[in-house]
Amino acid sequence: MNKIIIRSEQAKDIAEISEVIRLAFLNSEYSSHTEQFIVNSLRQNDVLTLSLVAEIDHILVGHIAISPVQLSTHELGWYGFGPVSILPKMQKQGIGSQLILSALEILKDLKAKGCVLLGDPNYYHRFGFKSYAELILKDVPAQYFQAISFNKNIPQAIVTYHSAFNATE
C-alpha cells in the first residue's frame, strides 16, 4: 500500500467524503445509515471542528469527523468523534488508526479537555478510550460510550451531541 496522507478536508472533497461515509456504513448492522447526512449537517451548522481525510494516491479512502459535545455541567472543551469512516476494501489496514491518532493530536493542540465516542470498546481501548460511570450518554449501553481525557479529569456529566446527529437526509 502506498503512503497514506492525512489532511483537512477541502471544499472539493465534500461529495467524495459523503460517498466514503455511505459506503463505510452500508453493511453495518449497528448503523442508522445516516452518517453522511450527519457530517453534512455538522458542516452546515458550522460545528464540524475537524474533518480529516485519509488519501492514498489522491483517492479518499477514509474520513473522521470531530464536533463539540455539550456536558450537563456546562464544561467546555469536550469533543465527540464520529463518524470514523473507511472504505470497506481499505479497512483493517491501519487507516482508521492513523486518522484517530491524528485527530487526537490536533485536539490536544487545540487544548481540548477530552473526547468521547460511541463504538466498539475492543477497538478504541488501544487509543486510551474507556467507559466511565460518571460520563453518560443517555439510552446507550455504558460500555460503548467511551472517553479520553487530556487532563486526567473526567467530569460527572450527561453528554449531548449536537442536533445534527439527528439528520436523516
Rank of each mutant, 00 (worst) to 15 (best):
V61C: 11
I56K: 13
I56R: 02
D57Q: 14
P88G: 08
Q93F: 13
S32N: 14
Q36F: 13
T34W: 02
I64F: 12
I59P: 01
I64H: 00
D46T: 12
S67G: 14
L87E: 07
E35P: 04
H63D: 05
Q44K: 11
S41M: 01
K92Q: 15
D46E: 14
T73Q: 10
L76I: 15
F37A: 10
V39C: 14
N40G: 08
I64G: 04
S41W: 02
K89M: 08
G80P: 05
V61G: 03
H63T: 07
V69N: 00
R43Q: 14
L60W: 00
V84F: 08
S51M: 06
L76Y: 03
M90V: 10
E35F: 02
Y79D: 06
L52H: 11
H58A: 14
S67H: 12
L52G: 01
I86D: 07
L50I: 14
V47T: 06
V53I: 05
H63Y: 12
H58Y: 11
L48A: 15
W78G: 01
I56D: 12
V61E: 15
E75D: 14
G80Q: 15
L42C: 04
G80I: 15
S32I: 11
T49I: 11
L50R: 07
L76A: 09
H74K: 07
F81A: 11
I38R: 01
S67Q: 06
L42Y: 07
N40W: 04
L50T: 04
D57R: 06
Q70D: 12
S41P: 01
I86V: 15
S85D: 06
M90G: 02
S51G: 15
L87M: 10
S67M: 13
L76W: 04
I66E: 02
V61H: 13
L76G: 09
E35V: 02
H74N: 14
L71G: 10
M90L: 09
T49L: 05
F81I: 13
E55H: 01
H33Y: 10
V39M: 13
Q44V: 04
W78M: 08
N45A: 12
L42E: 07
Q93C: 08
L48W: 02
E55G: 05
L71M: 12
L52V: 03
S41G: 08
T73F: 00
L87T: 06
W78K: 07
F81Q: 15
L71F: 02
G82F: 08
H58I: 08
H58N: 12
L60I: 03
R43Y: 07
F81H: 07
S41Y: 00
S51P: 02
L52T: 00
Q36I: 01
I86S: 09
S32V: 11
